[in-house]
């Protein structure tokens, strides 16, 4: 009885707090709502105030402009997908491999090597841009997708994150496998990788979002328009259509919506992964 009364007294308070937090949350996502709404408007409606959230004459023309013609976002999407997917698969697998070595095998020099990884976390990408530019020029991969794909295969964060996870797997599991005559390769592929599926999914999603959103590396290493990724294509569109605000927002939607979709599907993994690596790491 007592609990029941307390709960029902709680409801209005809960409801009020929910409404306040929901209102603030909507303020947070207003940029997205405004973007979508503007992309469907006519030019005259863009800066109307009060904001007309539902356009009087909704039009798909601006989205069509973004997706058709010689500078269609289709090309940028294919480029971005190619780079992000190869990078994501490679980085996840290579990180898992290295993380297993660091977490589960007591080889000589392990701590010294890990210290190098640690110290490289501190080096800002700006330090590396110029030498990478010179090296890539020399190796002939400047202004090719390889300039993004090859470095994208390696993520120090990923090694850290997965190492952290592998350390939590009880050692008895590998010990009993050892007694059964299994080596590290078999333990890695048959025991550890299946156990690590959620952690691998987390890293894959986070890495994909980084690669998809990566503007800085693409800016430095790509000049050929046909090679542009979505962020560069978007910038190009905006430089060439400086007053077409509707078109800009249609282009921005094209850049953002895939990430919103990835987030909606993988929210659980993303949040779990970021939380684990921050709180426990």
């Amino acid at each position: 009885m007592e609990i029941h009364r307390r709960l029902s007294r709680d409801v209005p308070k809960r409801l009020a707090a929910t409404i306040v937090m929901l209102a603030l949350a909507i303020v947070m996502v207003i940029p997205f709502l405004w973007m979508i709404s503007t992309s469907l408007k006519t030019p005259a409606e863009v800066f109307e105030y009060p904001i007309r959230w539902f356009p009087a004459h909704p039009t798909w023309a601006h989205h069509l402009k973004v997706w058709t013609g010689p500078k269609s976002f289709g090309t940028y999407y294919l480029n971005s997908l190619k780079i992000s997917i190869i990078g994501m698969v490679g980085a996840t697998f290579l990180s898992a491999f290295a993380a297993y070595g660091f977490a589960r095998i007591a080889f000589k020099g392990r701590n010294a090597l890990f210290l190098i990884y640690l110290s490289m976390m501190m080096v800002p990408p700006q330090v590396l841009f110029v030498p990478k530019f010179i090296l890539f020029e020399w190796a002939g991969i400047y202004n090719t997708h390889l300039a993004l794909i090859l470095p994208g295969l390696f993520t120090i964060f990923g090694v850290f994150m997965l190492r952290q996870f592998f350390l939590t797997i009880p050692h008895e599991i590998s010990e009993s496998a050892f007694i059964d005559g299994a080596g590290h390769f078999r333990i890695f592929f048959r025991l550890v990788l299946p156990l690590a599926k959620p952690a691998l999914a987390t890293l894959a999603i986070i890495d994909f979002s980084w690669q998809w959103n990566d503007y800085e590396n693409a800016l430095v290493f790509l000049i050929d328009e046909r090679l542009y990724t979505v962020p560069l294509g978007l910038q190009n569109f905006i430089l060439e259509n400086t007053v077409d605000y509707n078109g800009m927002m249609a282009a921005a939607s094209a850049g953002i919506l895939p990430m919103i979709a990835v987030f909606a599907i993988g929210q659980r993994y993303i949040i779990q992964g970021l939380t684990n690596s921050a709180v426990k790491g």
Partner: peptide
Amino acid sequence: RGLYFMPYITSGVAVAFV
């Protein structure tokens, strides 16, 4: 939670232009 977190995951230049 998802709404508050959305800006972080959609980071990048697209949002900057908005």
